[in-house]
Design a protein around this nucleic acid. Structure first.
Length: 819
RNA sequence: GCCCAAGUGGCGGAAUGGUAUACGCGGCGGACUCAAAAUCCGCUUCCCGCAAGGGAUUAAGAGUUCGAGUCUCUUCUUGGGCACCA
């Protein structure tokens, strides 16, 4: 007999896997390719924490399961090592990121190897490697060439701590998502990607089951982010300015009869023209106040609404009433047309504004019991209970959808040319993606500015534009990147005319690095292009992608956009990069989220040292549903370790010659087939905790016997293998197999053998369980009822009245209704 | 404010509308041991009862059903997303 020593076993199999290239599929020949992707880590100085390990283990379990099912699984790993996070940490430590990052990557590599991931290390990548970011720059140029990358001066989110701009996606409630500083508004010239051109497709594909099978929560988050609104643009005539009209976007054109005033964003271009001389001073003062505000005070809701009157009016084309025109900072220039029609009776914000400035409130809708003139106490949106009022009979009896159509038609009739008064319009909340960063640690944007030629792409054969080795990489408040301090680097000849020119000194957003890394993995050994056409055709789109839902809108949306662009360019033949995506849950510790500030971050190293990686993996997968996460408790880990020890003992026992060739007991046979059925189904659905529970039950059943069948124990080992890979290899070898357990076929089951001959039938009287009877599965209702009535307790409860009804569910229960 | 999840023993968590509390942790008792650890065996939702048995119980309340943790409605709590988006 020998004992289970995890560290010996794990070291042995790590070495053998590397030596035998067990985890390196043949990328050019695989017949059943399965691309098993997990979100690559940012290599922090702290190393992997137990939450990362939970995420990677769950994805690895799935990959190993698929491999056992006969797929050639490619499970790559890499490092998302560019970006502000790495740079800030390096600055804090007084180190250069170019020095720090390789160190962190070495530590991560040690930990990822130690956890027993089935990683194809021959295809590891780091976004900071010039062989990688060369192609990130190439990707930028593909967008640039197609007019999808453009430079624009505009108000941007500026983080005063990180001293760089942030994309809208990186601003959470007016604060920097990374450091939490309140974001300021700055006017800068930045590079943008036209992701808004793809809004409709990005939204439509979310509902296309042939292209995407994603976690519902992630799909919902993307839908909300893209934010499609179906509405109309209405143009209001201005009696005092016959040449101008004010266009507003509204989703509630049916409330036009209740629109009593217009509000423009203070930055709206027509404000200058429309302001009456008498109001000039007040308007200018208000616009200055707003311009001085930062994004936070401007955008964070629930504050007192302010505004000023422009001294002029528009005409409501439906009611004919004059509508005063105001400017107010609750109207945003970036959304819609930068102007709204205010319907105070049916919009909370408009109601608050109208109340404050004593503007008229007119109903377009009335609730039951109200009439057209009942004063409005609070704005209400209206629903099926409401009816239209004040519409001169136009809408009275209509449902909201029909009313919208009717108003549009009404306005269209009065137009002298199409679009003069109204136009149907779909509006998105999504903004273009700002990718410029005024930082050091990223891929330089491959553009050269020439006075004569304008912005010119760096020729592709001159890529990569290497990041120059600067000593002082600290960002400053100037709004330009530290790269602008290296004239020797940025002074270059214009690639087109040869005149003196200047490189773009901003670097690109880290999210661009990660928006295409899955395309690079299969082609890391390809030097002359970003990705090989053959490899890409064989392996992509990604078969299964697993990652955190914190990237539901950032990384996942950008990746989809980039893939669509490449698809349209004819470079890939799919629009959606990730066939199946599942978000994993989060690990909490003692009921609280793990965070450095709370000091409850669990380092997996010490648990691996004490219990072994296989035990930690099994524990992490057992502690809760993978897609929901769970609570990490030190005491809980001993259970999975006991489980592995017991499997080990069963393997030892199965090797005993006296134990072979026994006849399998009926109840063991049933449990065995039930377990195979259940484990197969549960792993497929990522319900690892219940799969492990089923395996524990099988072990408990096997332990009741003096001897266990080697066949059953062998299949038990195969089913444990995805969770405890080194352990399973060792057991498999001990059972006499000469090849990897991961090259063995996943156990099959016979559904007929999952059912026992006898069944327990529950007996209920008036809905309460009063007994149970065991009968042959083939027994009929009459037999079951007779047996049930014969039970003393049941009989007593039946005697309390008359049986009115009997419900019989074969194989399950018999229920008597008595009164 | 709006949208989406979730709420089950001391704890992590199981339950195609059909025996709620599987599996694991912890706890209690026992075996082994000089002793402890490890291991093994048994018990463990709560209340009444020696027991047989009875009652209560899936955040709270109502409803549908022979039967509800599961379906419907209302309320509360927690977590997540969106948020002057017209």
């Amino acid at each position: 007999m020998s004992e289970y020593h995890p560290h010996d076993v794990e070291a042995k199999w790590r070495a053998l896997w590397a030596e035998r290239r067990t985890n390196e599929p043949d990328l050019d020949q695989a017949r059943r390719p399965f691309y098993n992707l997990m979100m690559f880590p940012y290599p922090s100085a702290e190393g992997l924490h137990v939450g990362n390990l939970f995420a990677f283990t769950g994805a690895d379990v799935y990959g190993r399961f698929k491999r056992l099912q006969g797929w050639q699984v490619f499970e790559p790993i890499g490092f998302d090592a560019f970006g502000i996070h790495s740079e800030n940490f390096a600055l804090k430590m007084g180190l250069h990121p170019a020095e720090l990052i390789p160190r962190n990557i070495a530590n991560f590599t040690r930990q990822l190897t130690g956890m027993g991931g089935m990683f194809a290390w021959e295809h590891v990548l780091s976004t900071t490697d010039p062989d990688y970011y060369k192609w990130t720059q190439w990707l930028f140029l593909q967008l640039f060439k197609r007019g999808l990358a453009y430079k624009k001066k505009g108000a941007v989110n500026w983080c005063p701590t990180d001293k760089t701009v942030l994309s809208n996606e990186q601003v959470i409630a007016g604060a920097c998502e990374r450091c939490g500083s309140l974001v300021e508004q700055r006017v800068l010239e930045q590079w943008y990607f036209r992701i808004t051109d793809y809004a409709e497709r990005l939204l439509d594909n979310l509902g296309d089951a042939t292209k995407m099978d994603w976690s519902a929560t992630t799909v919902q988050a993307q839908r909300n982010w893209i934010g499609r609104s179906d509405g109309a643009i209405v143009r209001f005539a201005l009696p005092e300015h016959a040449n101008e009209r004010i266009a507003v976007f509204t989703t509630r054109v049916d409330t036009l009869f209740g629109a009593t005033f217009l509000v423009l964003a203070p930055e709206h271009p027509l404000v200058e023209t429309l302001t009456a001389p008498a109001e000039r001073a007040a308007v200018d003062a208000y616009r200055r106040t707003v311009a001085a505000q930062d994004v936070v005070t401007r955008k964070v809701g629930d504050k007192e609404k302010t505004g000023v009157f422009l001294g002029t009016h528009a005409i409501n084309p439906a009611s004919g009433q004059a509508m005063p025109i105001w400017i107010a900072d609750y109207v945003l220039m970036e959304y819609g047309t930068g102007a709204i029609m205010a319907v105070p009776a049916h919009d909370e914000r408009d109601f608050a504004f109208a109340t404050r400035y004593a503007l008229p409130v007119v109903r377009a809708l009335a609730e039951p019991g109200d009439d057209a003139n009942t004063p409005v106490a609070a704005a209400f949106a209206g629903d099926g209970q409401c009816r239209y009022v004040n519409s001169n009979g136009l809408l009275d009896t209509l449902a909201p959808d029909a009313a919208r159509e009717r108003v549009v038609a009404f306005l269209e009739q009065r137009e002298t040319r199409p679009g003069e008064l109204v136009e149907r319009k779909v509006q998105f909340r999504l903004y273009d993606w700002c990718i410029s960063r005024q930082r050091y640690w990223g891929p330089p944007i491959p553009i050269i500015y020439c006075d004569r030629c304008g912005p010119v792409a760096v020729p592709e054969d001159q890529l990569p534009v290497l990041l120059p080795p600067l000593d002082d990489i600290r960002p400053d408040d100037s709004g330009v990147s530290p790269l602008a301090r290296d004239p020797a680097w940025y002074h270059v000849a214009c690639p087109e005319c040869g005149a003196d020119a200047r490189r773009e000194t901003d670097v690109s957003d880290t999210f661009l690095d990660s928006a295409w890394y899955y395309l690079r993995y299969p082609s890391t050994d390809v030097a002359d292009r970003a990705f090989s056409a053959d490899r890409t055709r064989r392996w992509l789109p990604v078969t299964s992608y697993i990652g955190g839902n914190e990237h539901a809108v950032l990384h996942l949306l950008y990746s989809r956009f980039i893939t669509m662009v490449l698809h349209d360019a004819g470079m890939v033949d799919f629009e959606e990069p990730f066939r199946r995506f599942r978000a994993h849950g989060l690990i909490i510790k003692d009921g609280a989220k793990m965070s450095k500030s709370k000091g409850n971050v669990v380092n997996p190293d010490e648990y691996i040292a004490r219990w072994g990686a296989d035990t930690l993996r099994t524990y992490l997968m057992f502690l809760g549903p993978y897609q929901e996460g769970g609570d990490f408790r030190d005491s809980g880990i001993s259970g999975p370790r006991r489980f592995l020890d017991r499997v080990w003992a069963l393997v030892e026992e199965a090797q005993d010659p006296d134990c072979r060739d026994g006849e399998i007991r009926q109840d063991v046979l049933i449990k065995w087939h039930q377990t195979k059925m259940k484990v197969t189904a549960e792993i497929e659905e990522l319900r690892y905790n219940t799969a492990i529970a089923a395996l524990m039950e099988l072990v408990n059943t096997l332990r009741e016997q003096s001897c266990s069948e080697p066949t059953v124990v062998g299949e038990l080992v195969q089913m444990v293998a995805p969770f405890a890979p080194h352990f399973a290899e060792e057991c498999w070898e001990r059972l006499g197999h000469g090849t990897s357990v991961f090259d063995s076929p996943w156990p099959t089951f016979d559904p007929a053998l999952t059912l026992s001959d006898d069944v327990t039938i529950v007996v209920q009287v008036n809905g309460k369980v009063r007994g149970q009877v065991t009968v042959a599965r083939s027994a009929g209702e009459a037999d079951v009822q007779a047996l049930a009535r014969a039970d003393d307790t049941v009989a007593r409860h039946l005697a309390a009245g008359t049986v009115r009804k009997v419900v019989y569910v074969p194989g399950r229960l018999i229920s008597f209704v008595v009164n």
